[in-house]
Each structure stands twice: as C-alpha cells, then as structure tokens.
Amino acid sequence: MSKELFGLAAEFNSPEEIIEAAKKANSAGYKNMDAYVPFPIEDLPNALGQKETRLGWVVLGMAIIGALTGFFMQYYANTYFYPLNAGGKPMNSWPNFVIITFEFTILFSAFTAGLFMLGRNGLPRPYHPIFNMEKAQNITGDKFVLCIESKDKKFNLNKTKDFLASLNPNYVEEVEL
C-alpha cells in the first residue's frame, strides 16, 4: 500500500441490500461515505444520512430574479430608454410584458436547476477516485457500491474492512485516490 487510499468499497447486488448496508454504516457512525448506484433509489440518501438538497430553494431565488430581470428590462426600455407612444397607451403597458417576463422566469429557473445540479455534483469531472475500482463499470450497469472514504474520522483500514465485510457484500475493495 504505497499509494494513498480514497476509501473502502463494498459491492452489493440489489437496491434493498445497499439500503440495508447504508443504514448500518450510518448507525455505525460513518459520515464521509457515498453510495454509487445505477439509478436513483428513493430511500438511499436518507439511509446514508445525507441532507436534503437545497436545489429547490436556489431555483426559487433565481426564478424571482429572472422574473424581475424580464419585467424591468422591458419596463426600462419602454419607459426610460426609448419611450414610444403607441396610440396614447401608457408607457408601462405591463400586460404586454407578461409573456416575456414569464419566459425569463422559466429560462432562469430551468438553467439554474440544470447548472446547479451539475456544478454541485462537481461535473464535468473526468476523473473520480471511484473509477479506480476494478469493476467500476458495473456501477452504471447493475451493481450497487457503498464506499466509506478514508477521510472519515472513524475510518480505520482493518476495522472498516471488517465492518463492510460483515454487511455481506460481494467483495470489499481498497480504492486508491
């Protein structure tokens, strides 16, 4: 073991098994860990003790900013920058601004949701230590991996290995950083 260790990974065969393993690891006090799975499993973040994502709130904030930007862009253009009297209608003819305001709101919220998700997940990121697993390619196929990272306070190579082995995985593997 000359290279640095990212963590210990254990591979499981089904969503039920990994949820069970995640719950046990969580109650054993491990914090720095994550599961790598081929499709979203509803109860898994909870079992791992992960916090709810703040993504929704960020999107709400950006949606409001988008709405204000959309409206006041039109307001500014039509009342201050280039007031154009059309048939004596008010300069701030807000009903005409509704659609573009709406589209700005959607545009801002959609791109916030997408880019926030990518950014917080650290994507694009060509390299991730989990790819060092010998059978990492099975994660997007049909295998479910629990990885306890070496930076966790409770991490101890032998003890954690024994702990993971007690969860009845297919195998436990040391993953290099």
Binding site: V37, P45, Q50, G56, M117, R120, L123
Partner: peptide, 20 residues
C-alpha cells in the same frame, strides 16, 4: 461529464429533473 452515480448526485439530479 464524468457521472459517477453517487447517491448524493442522484438526489440533486432527481430534484433538478423534477424542477425541469
């Protein structure tokens, strides 16, 4: 983009997808 399928990533992904 280097997707790993981590549970945390899936959680954000699911939320983003629902909002989209």
């Amino acid at each position: 983009l280097g997707w790993t399928g981590s549970a945390k990533a899936w959680q954000r992904y699911g939320r983003a997808y629902l909002i989209l």
